[in-house]
């Protein structure tokens, strides 16, 4: 007997294909037409523009952008957004200039010309997942960075209180927290205020240097 194939339910990324708004920013030549037709077979909501617009008229979830000699120098601000749009590059050259442009536009997928219907679906799904993962990771990193910064500030503020007031670390933290509660601000803000005040007081206390 054959071992059962591991059966899966349908991945979420495949389920929303029919509501996906897709922009195709490619010349309306044979390749552009074929790409549009295949996306329509898949069932996406497709809109085509050429040349590539500098602003998105609609919140496209996915954009297929022709990365060709005539587009590599375009300034497309929407490609530098928050990662809400998945970008796939459509290329007909593979030289370093074009590959570099693909990277600069922040594409997470590539579709090569001549366009074949086979492969478009897989590229689309993979690029969507990569984009979503990158966005999630970016948000997580931002959160962690800000947490790290405030932890550093709090411990610095505690150190100031400990040396200037002669209190324990635990007491120093209690002071900061009480201040935050009384003034209804974040603990980090009190910590920052203590650090700033300390810097000023230290500067004032120092003898002036002469020129």
């Amino acid at each position: 007997m054959v071992r059962p194939h591991r059966i899966r339910t349908t991945p979420e990324l495949l389920k929303d294909l029919r509501t996906l708004r897709v922009g195709v920013f490619c010349p309306r030549d044979h390749n552009g037409e074929e790409l549009i037709r295949q996306l329509q077979r898949i069932g996406c909501q497709v809109q085509a523009f050429w040349p590539p617009p500098s602003e998105l008229s609609e919140p496209f979830e996915v954009v297929f952008l022709a990365v060709k000699p005539e587009t590599i120098n375009l300034d497309l601000p929407w490609t530098k957004g928050d990662g809400g749009t998945t970008l796939l590059a459509v290329v007909n050259y593979e030289n370093p200039t074009i590959v570099d442009a693909v990277l600069c536009f922040g594409a997470t997928g590539v579709v090569a010309e001549p366009i074949r219907s086979f492969g478009v679906l897989s590229s689309l799904i993979l690029a969507r997942r990569l984009t979503a993962q990158l966005r999630q990771q970016k948000r997580r990193i931002e959160k962690l960075e800000s947490k790290l910064l405030s932890a550093r500030q709090i411990s610095e503020a505690k150190a100031i209180l400990m040396s200037s007031k002669g209190v324990s670390e635990h007491e120093a933290y209690a002071i900061i927290r009480e201040q935050a509660m009384t003034k209804r601000v974040a603990i980090e803000d009190i910590a920052t205020a203590i650090i700033n005040a300390n810097e000023i007081l230290t500067a004032v206390g120092k003898p002036r240097t002469t020129a």
Partner: peptide, 13 residues
């Protein structure tokens, strides 16, 4: 089916 059903080979859901 009394009428022909259109093919939809890429239908996922």
């Amino acid at each position: 089916a009394k009428r022909a059903v259109h093919p939809d080979p890429y239908l996922v859901t």
